[in-house]
Amino acid sequence: MKETTVCILDDEPIVGDRLKPELEDDGYSVEVFTDSASALNRLDETCFDVFITDLKMEGVDGMGFLEKVKEKCPDSEVIVITGYGTLESAREALIKGAYDFITKPFRIGEIRAAVKKAKKRAKRNIA
């Protein structure tokens, strides 16, 4: 079975630093980006199964990234994480096709569970 790929995009480097080893422990293949431009470049090359993205960023923000992902990889699932969690942004993200909306600060377990569920859904999408 092909390894599940996860893309983490957050301008806070610590988020990727901590999530990457934990998710790799769970058997995912993880790539970390701290700016949306390089993440978009990578998106041009490949579709990840699960995307984890922050909302507030320089340049293309999380919401724009979500749109791009859904446009290019409709089968992938996107988990939005943000410190600026408001009802409006959550609704907007879900309408735009986000799988989950997690507000900072979160525990590693929450992300793990969300990724696990998203992976199942992504696999189902492909199948």
Binding site: V15, G85, K104, P105, F106, R107, I108
Partner: peptide, 21 residues
């Protein structure tokens, strides 16, 4: 309050990882 969530998240994640691993 929103901005504070970022360092708090970093602290939580780091502490979590220390706790688990």
């Amino acid at each position: 309050a929103h901005e504070l969530n970022n360092p708090l998240n970093n602290i939580t994640l780091t502490a979590d990882m220390l706790l688990e691993d």
